[in-house]
């Protein structure tokens, strides 16, 4: 598995990459925010509150995508005891957690002027809260459980069980009557967001993805330094 030399090599690349990703992130975020906050038009119905959508929707996408990735990595960690994967899923979790919180908070800020309430125990909102709790459980399991082998097993199980929630979040708005609106960006049908709003949405998504990658690399580097300091040549 991870030889020390190989670990050093990966570290060299990933620490260099961090700088480039950071520059790219700042660039894309600047373009995205200018588009979303200044250049894009207001909505016919909700006027300027639509701008919250450019943060809310990409954050929710990232939170869901990251958790799915963690779940897949956890399955292979659990079954094949692949020690390369748990480090990746452990490093992915913090940004995913932050994005799930951002999605909940911005949703609440948007909900007050549009729906007339900060919070509703609606299927979409509640399942998203459960996702945030699963992220928290996953992150805490690493802190609470001291034995590394045990932590790998238990955190993997948390991620795999939490993944059951992912399709529930996605389809909650289709399965039940919810206060939350249905999907606007659809794969099979026409998207119901005008292109002048869809483009800033995608740029912001790219910016958030870069942010996730940046936090992931930083966390990954920290984990590798920790392993190095322990004087281990493998995990």
């Amino acid at each position: 598995m991870f030889k020390f030399l190989k670990l050093g090599k990966i570290f060299e690349i990933s620490s260099k990459l961090t700088k480039y990703i950071f520059v790219l992130f700042v660039l894309v975020l600047t373009i995205g925010l200018t588009e979303a906050l200044i250049l894009s038009p207001e909505d016919y119905k909700q006027s300027h509150s639509v701008r919250i959508m450019y943060v809310h929707v990409p954050a929710a996408w990232m939170a869901l995508g990251t958790f799915s990735a963690i779940a897949f990595l956890s399955i292979s960690t659990f079954i094949f005891k692949n020690k390369n994967f748990f480090l990746i899923s452990k490093s992915l979790a913090p940004s995913g957690f932050i994005f799930s919180i951002i999605a909940l908070v911005t949703g609440s800020i948007w909900g007050k002027p549009t729906w007339g309430t900060w919070w509703a125990w609606d299927a979409r909102i509640t399942s998203m809260l459960i996702l945030a709790l699963f992220y928290l459980m996953f992150l805490l399991s690493w802190k609470v459980i001291e034995n590394n082998d045990k932590a790998i097993k238990i955190s993997s199980l948390i991620a795999i069980l939490g993944a059951i929630n992912i399709p529930i979040i996605k389809f909650s708005v289709n399965w039940w009557n919810t206060l939350h609106q249905g999907p606007s960006v659809k794969i099979l049908n026409d998207t119901t967001i005008h292109s002048s709003m869809l483009i800033p949405l995608f740029i912001m998504t790219a910016a958030f993805a870069l942010f996730s990658l940046l936090i992931f690399l930083m966390k990954f580097n920290t984990e590798m330094i920790r392993i190095k300091n322990k004087g281990l040549d493998r995990l």
Binding site: E42, D43, Y44, K45, G116, Q181, S184, T192, I193, H194
Partner: peptide, 18 residues
């Protein structure tokens, strides 16, 4: 006793709506 507005999945600028 309480009214909540439900938003739909359509987003567009006012000119397009017009």
């Amino acid at each position: 006793v309480k009214i909540l507005a439900k938003h739909d999945e359509n987003y567009m600028p006012p000119e397009v709506k017009k």
